[in-house]
Amino acid sequence: MAPKHCGLCQDARAILKRPKTGQQICKDCFFYVFEEEVHNTITEAGLFRPGDRVAIGASGGKDSTVLAYVMKTLNERYNYGLELFLLSIDEGITGYRDDSLKTVKRNQVQYDMPLKILSYEELYGWTMDRIVSSIGKKNNCTFCGVFRRQALDRGACALKVDHIVTGHNADDIAETVLMNIMRGDIARLGRCTSICTQGEDTIRRSKPFKYAYEKEIVMYAYFKKLDYFSTECIYSPDAYRGHARSFLKDLEAARPSAIIDIIHSGEAFEVKEEIKAAQKTQRTCRRCGYMSSNELCKACTLLEGLERRLRETVISSLLDPPAARLADKMLVLISLIVTVLSRESKIICR
């Protein structure tokens, strides 16, 4: 069979079939369209202003590694005038985050960007390993997601940046649209397709890969020989999201445009005005001052639950104390009090 010519330049030999459009194209054209589409996304939404300090949420995975590379490339090519940083969160998952953080540190050197690493332990006094040992694997993604969101904001404050960009891709957005419809989460459905979100006091947060297919990100990393860490989180058995993800993959197999079509659908409708009016207004958390729709923000509510659980465990074992165990538990209690106090004193940015 004669080699196919690239469907875009009509000149070079096609070496790949674009997952997004099905076109058979050459490597150079693939780099061109991938980068141009991200550039179009950035310019169309007016994400940045010259001089902005932008933190790239870096996990060491494929999305954030490619994001850091593409942001650096576009910043230089189109003179965005951005000052770029890498911001990484250490959730405290032994065997998962340890390795991926090494990748981020390598990226720091390769891309010549300042790196800031913040840990859950430092911010909340809890690592994910401890949380999972306390509550089990069920629902632990809720803790991790809520804590990471706040942690990124706090890290960004520490770096004094104006903007955080994250590596959420088109597959993530499409999956979230479907999940929010199926769970009836109207508040999140209204904002999950927005490219840029900003709370009252928080830093702007955006997703330049909003229209980039996960497969194309992997393809880009592969052809550019980018250094990334590829392992699924060991604590991620989120059954509902897992169902939604495998459904999305089936849809993509039936018709590759399904991902972009779902995003288009998500952008083409909005929550009715009368429903919006009935939604809760935004407040500030009385414990940490972060934005919240209730008296306590989600992170503090979760933390209170964890602390209450720990207190109950300690007190119940104190009621029947062999001397050695008593001493042990007292130490845990004291360390807990110290941690909570130190965290309260560390409330940053307010």
Partner: peptide, 22 residues
């Protein structure tokens, strides 16, 4: 999904009922 999450079909219909074209 309805087997494990029986309220899904109802949630979908109710959610879409709260939407308007943008």
């Amino acid at each position: 999904l309805e087997k494990d999450f029986p309220s899904t079909v109802s949630a979908i219909s109710k959610t879409v009922g709260k939407l308007a074209p943008k």
